Amino acid sequence: MAEQVLNQFRSDKELREDCVAIYEALGMDLNTAFRMFMERTRMVRGLPFPAVLPETRMTRIEAQRAIDDLRAEAADLPEMSLDEINAEIRASRAERKPRE
């Protein structure tokens, strides 16, 4: 038998109790479940379950709603001339220049 080591970690009490109940219903204790997890990890050389971020997709309706919301926001903004826009850009750039 290979040398045994003690593994310890902290977890939420309710989470532990829920997991203990699940594993007991499957006929095993928590230690056996963790040993199985570790063996499977070694077998697959990674997490023994998919660990990916959910793909976030926007439906056509959601996209149209977002566009409509942006248009509504823009409708309340005052109209600016090209000269006014350029003046704002120049002022912003002047503020960002390093002071000597």
Rank of each mutant, 00 (worst) to 15 (best):
2 A>K: 07
2 A>T: 04
3 E>L: 10
3 E>N: 07
3 E>C: 06
5 V>A: 09
5 V>C: 09
5 V>T: 11
6 L>F: 08
10 R>S: 05
10 R>C: 03
10 R>E: 05
11 S>D: 02
11 S>R: 11
12 D>I: 04
13 K>V: 03
13 K>F: 00
15 L>G: 01
15 L>R: 08
16 R>H: 06
17 E>D: 10
17 E>P: 04
19 C>R: 08
19 C>Y: 11
19 C>I: 00
19 C>A: 04
19 C>M: 03
20 V>M: 04
21 A>T: 01
22 I>T: 02
23 Y>F: 10
23 Y>R: 03
24 E>S: 01
24 E>R: 08
25 A>K: 06
25 A>M: 08
26 L>P: 02
26 L>V: 00
26 L>S: 00
27 G>Y: 00
29 D>H: 04
30 L>G: 04
31 N>M: 02
31 N>L: 00
32 T>P: 06
32 T>W: 03
32 T>G: 06
32 T>M: 02
33 A>V: 03
34 F>V: 07
35 R>G: 04
35 R>V: 01
36 M>Q: 15
37 F>D: 01
38 M>P: 05
39 E>I: 10
40 R>T: 02
41 T>W: 13
42 R>Y: 12
43 M>V: 13
43 M>T: 14
43 M>C: 13
44 V>T: 12
44 V>K: 11
46 G>T: 05
47 L>E: 14
48 P>Y: 12
48 P>Q: 14
48 P>D: 13
49 F>W: 12
49 F>C: 12
50 P>V: 09
51 A>C: 12
51 A>P: 05
52 V>H: 14
52 V>F: 13
52 V>W: 10
53 L>P: 15
53 L>Y: 15
53 L>D: 15
53 L>S: 15
55 E>T: 13
55 E>L: 14
55 E>S: 14
55 E>Q: 12
56 T>M: 15
57 R>D: 14
57 R>A: 14
58 M>N: 08
59 T>K: 10
60 R>C: 02
61 I>R: 15
62 E>H: 15
62 E>M: 13
63 A>P: 13
63 A>I: 09
63 A>G: 11
65 R>N: 13
65 R>K: 15
65 R>E: 07
65 R>H: 14
66 A>E: 04
67 I>R: 15
67 I>D: 12
68 D>V: 10
70 L>W: 07
72 A>I: 00
72 A>M: 04
72 A>H: 05
74 A>P: 01
75 A>S: 10
76 D>V: 00
77 L>W: 05
78 P>L: 01
79 E>F: 12
80 M>C: 06
80 M>Q: 09
80 M>Y: 06
80 M>N: 05
81 S>C: 01
81 S>G: 02
81 S>N: 00
82 L>G: 13
82 L>C: 08
82 L>P: 06
83 D>A: 04
83 D>P: 00
84 E>Q: 10
85 I>V: 01
86 N>T: 01
86 N>D: 07
87 A>N: 02
89 I>D: 02
89 I>C: 01
90 R>C: 03
91 A>N: 08
95 E>R: 14
95 E>V: 09
95 E>C: 09
95 E>I: 09
97 K>E: 10
97 K>D: 07
99 R>I: 03
99 R>D: 08
99 R>K: 09
100 E>C: 00
100 E>T: 04
100 E>Q: 03
